[in-house]
């Protein structure tokens, strides 16, 4: 082999190693979170940990069911509200708006996506929380405040991924439908939307991931009381907030239990990604 060939070989291997870094990083993250979080899961017991309803670190009682319930309720609310508005925004931008109007609005949605989560949290804390407290009652820091903030935060992700999926639907679908006498609105909801189904479902699944994982915005508005929410105005404490609130002062078993929460979150996120992979791979449409 001459020198040029050797250099080429080395450079190409170097590219490969850089690509491999992502896989290594993921394995490292999985390894270290499991190393810290699995032992307490076994010592506390999976059932007691996941289904236990009381979280009292001082008494060594670690049950995260209230937090799972809080995360589930907040995510469901956020996805319903943010998903609906986001999907309709995507439909508007992809199919209804003039190209000029869409070009005007799209950067605004990107800006919304770029706003740091702590700014969302701060905004919620100074405007939404007092508003809820004054007009609807309760402390203000509540499931409702969390849902409102989460829905605005996941909206841009949902809107932009859904829009991409809608734009990928071939023009012939729309033309065929219109030629058969369907109105533009029927075409949009009965032809284009179903054709973009798998991309849109993937967007929703990713949105769920974001809502479940969101921390700094939620911790400022949720109220931080580990209880199963019974009404929209109850203060709650999702899984991520628990880690964020207690990590800075926890030690020993308490800290390990926080890592165990991290493992629960991680398993959920990886499972969600597998779902997205499956949905996008199995897509027959488009």
């Amino acid at each position: 082999m001459n020198r040029a060939k050797i250099i080429t070989f080395i450079i190409e291997k170097f590219f490969w190693i850089c690509a491999l870094l992502s896989l290594l990083a993921l394995l490292l993250i999985l390894g270290f979170l499991l190393k810290e979080g699995l032992p307490p899961l076994f010592s506390i017991g999976f059932g007691d940990f996941l289904l236990g309803t009381s979280w009292k670190p001082l008494e060594d009682t670690f049950g995260i069911f209230p937090m799972i319930a809080a995360t589930a309720a907040a995510t469901a609310g956020g996805i319903l509200l943010g998903g609906f508005v986001g999907l309709f925004t995507a439909l508007f931008l992809a199919e209804v708006a003039s190209p000029k109007l869409a070009r005007l609005i799209r950067p605004l949605i990107q800006l919304l996506a770029g706003i740091p989560s702590v700014v969302f949290g701060f905004f919620g804390l100074v405007l939404i929380v007092p508003w809820i407290s004054n007009h609807l009652g309760g402390p203000g820091n509540s499931l409702l405040a969390t849902i409102l903030i989460l829905s605005v935060m996941i909206l841009p992700t949902l809107a932009s991924i859904s829009e991409t999926a809608l734009r990928a639907v071939p023009q012939e679908y729309r033309e065929g439908s219109l030629a058969l006498g369907a109105s533009p609105m029927e075409t949009l909801f009965k032809v284009t939307l179903p054709a973009a189904k798998s991309g849109i479902i993937a967007a929703f699944v990713l949105g769920v991931g974001r809502a479940v994982g969101e921390t700094m915005a939620v911790v400022l508005v949720c109220g931080n009381r580990p209880q199963i929410p019974k009404s929209l105005l109850d203060p709650i404490r999702p899984l991520t907030s628990t880690i964020a609130m207690e990590m800075s002062y926890s030690t020993g078993t308490h800290q390990q239990a926080l890592f165990a929460i991290g493992v629960v979150l991680l398993v959920f996120i990886v499972a969600l990604n597998l779902c997205v992979n499956y949905i996008l791979k199995g897509r027959k449409d488009v």
């Binding site: 979170l33 974001r210 479940v212 991520t240 964020a244 991290g262 979150l265 996120i269």
Partner: peptide, 8 residues
Amino acid sequence: LAGIPSIL
């Protein structure tokens, strides 16, 4: 990696 929440 893209989906892992920042708290993790």
